[in-house]
Amino acid sequence: MFELLAVGTIVGFLSGFFGIGGGTVLVPILLALGYDTKVAIGISVVQMVFSSIYGSYLNKKNGSLDLSIVLYLGIGGFIGATLSGSLAAYFSNTTLEIVFLLFATFALIRLFFKIPEYKEQREVNKIVLLIIGLFVGSLSMMIGVGGSILIVPILVGFLHIDLKRAISAGLFFVVFSSVPGFISHYLNGHIDMNAGLIIGMSSLLGVYYGIHFKQKIQTSLQRKLIVVFYVSVVSYLSYRVISLI
């Protein structure tokens, strides 16, 4: 119980601070605690429902969330996430961990390439946004991450949206993907509801302080901290995958 409460608070803080769904750190922690890969992914999705909804409410309250930015991406994410549980059931635990590792490695590598920020937002074809959301929603929910790892660079690099607003929009995208993702994983028997609720509820406190802290620090420091975070995740997952192979 106390372990799960602590894990939920930490994951919630990282979710709010970095604008992520929380699964990128929660799944490796649950794997280290001995949970089955698919159950760890299912619990992660439950936590994301809590943290993304509450975090998006706080972002809307402080004025950093523009709902129109993520609407079509979100609709696509919703559709894609409904397939996630069936996709996860189709693959082995080892395959899912390898996909998760590749996902985290991509997130780490992209941080070393500066995404130029622009003063004016530009229009992009709504069908393109829908397709991007569908792909990101199905892939991310299959491995128990929110998808904002991919959504944030898309918003900044292609739509020319300010980084902090993009992070808020990325967390809101997780609302669209995590709710149907939860239903899909539940129907496929991947959810430990007791552990998921404990972690999900305790994550709300972490989300509050994570979002508060995000508003107080410089973007450059936030970038350095997220690099450290992803290096840790990729190192641990690489060790696990090598051990499994």
Rank of each mutant, 00 (worst) to 15 (best):
L102G: 05
D192F: 02
F229T: 01
L67W: 15
G133C: 10
I167Y: 09
F103C: 01
L96K: 03
F135C: 09
F91A: 13
S243D: 12
N62H: 15
F113W: 09
L111E: 10
S168A: 15
F172M: 14
G137C: 08
F113V: 13
L102H: 00
F112N: 03
G80K: 07
T82D: 06
N188I: 01
E3W: 14
S56T: 13
I242G: 04
G77I: 13
G42V: 03
T37M: 07
S138A: 15
E97G: 07
A81D: 06
D162S: 14
V25S: 08
F112T: 04
H160V: 08
I161W: 06
L204Y: 07
K60T: 09
L33M: 14
Q215G: 04
H160W: 09
I43K: 01
F17M: 13
L67F: 15
K119L: 13
L204E: 03
V152H: 02
I115T: 13
F2W: 11
Y54V: 04
G133D: 06
A166I: 07
V241C: 09
S220F: 15
S92D: 12
L187A: 07
V49C: 09
E3H: 13
K164D: 07
K216F: 08
I143K: 07
L159V: 14
G206K: 02
F78M: 15
I191P: 00
F106M: 06
K38W: 07
K224M: 12
Q222N: 14
S84Q: 01
K126L: 15
E117Y: 13
S235H: 05
S178Y: 12
S140L: 10
A104M: 13
L58M: 10
K114V: 11
G63P: 12
I75T: 08
V7K: 00
S15Y: 12
V49R: 03
G210H: 06
L163K: 15
P180G: 08
K224S: 10
N125A: 12
G8H: 02
G196D: 02
I109P: 02
G21M: 14
Y209P: 03
E123L: 09
S138K: 09
G42T: 04
T105P: 00
T9K: 00
I29S: 01
L130P: 05
V174R: 08
K38P: 01
I115Q: 08
P180L: 10
L163R: 14
K126N: 08
I199G: 00
I151S: 01
M142H: 02
I10G: 03
G12Y: 05
L26E: 05
F229G: 00
I41C: 00
N125G: 07
F13R: 06
I132F: 15
I167P: 00
S203R: 03
G76Q: 12
E123Q: 13
Y239R: 07
F100D: 00
K214I: 11
P153R: 10
I131N: 07
L30T: 06
Y57K: 14
G157E: 08
V7L: 03
T9I: 05
G137F: 08
L134M: 14
G147D: 08
Y236K: 05
L101F: 09
F100K: 01
G55E: 02
S184I: 06
G133N: 10
